[in-house]
Write a protein that binds this DNA or RNA. Structure first.
Lengths: 101, 101
DNA sequence: TTAATATATAAGTAAATTATTATATAAGAG
DNA sequence: CTCTTATATAATAATTTACTTATATATTAA
């Protein structure tokens, strides 16, 4: 892996909110709308965090109607794998009423 | 490893200059004075970068007279080990006249 | 002791990052 | 088509980070 990508990935994961996003994604796909409640920041802020992780090649997305589901890429780099190993899986309570998808 | 330390270490290594410092340290101890030329930034800036790496538990130092030599800690965390694996060792030319130690 | 050198700390500034609010886009419902 | 909802993008404000210059500390040499 080249140095530039390494740095990009490290920058992408060196943030509390984005580490939390990854904790949630450990167990599988998550809808954007669920992240807003988890982080307690605005929807655009969440969107920007997801973009940063996506641009670093850490997560990928698929669209389901108006919703968008993000997941961790198939084969993450060694650094990302190691980071994920250190993170505890975080359950999302999808049963709560505000979850729309 | 707890989440706070994880984030601290990730922040510490997600910077070009500090990754360069680590590349130099892969091969062993390095004197602070040598880093100034390598990075091309001021001496206080180098000192601050080293402090950040030290506070994250990534490097440690010993004093030799007025000089100070830094090295990577004995048993780095899994993340730091993985980062180091991705870095190419970088040789320092200690034979250049400006190297004082 | 005084002078010189290596490094660290402090204070201030510049640059980068992360948030917010406002707005755009895109899909489904009526 | 119009309305609503989910998400993204743009513009900007707030915060954090990384530099610089100036100064302090500590060690050695004279």
């Amino acid at each position: 892996m080249d140095l530039q990508l390494l740095e990009k990935q490290l920058k992408a994961v060196s943030d509390t909110n984005r580490l939390t996003l990854l904790s949630c994604l450990k167990s599988g796909e998550v809808c954007v709308c669920d992240f807003v409640d988890v982080l307690g920041i605005s929807q655009p802020a969440v969107s920007q965090h997801l973009k940063k992780l996506e641009e670093a090649g850490i997560i990928t997305a698929r669209k389901l109607g108006t919703w968008k589901h993000y997941r961790i890429v198939e084969n993450p780099s060694p650094i990302i794998k190691t980071v994920l190993d250190q993170l505890e899986e975080r359950e999302l309570c999808n049963c709560r009423p505000s979850s729309s998808c």
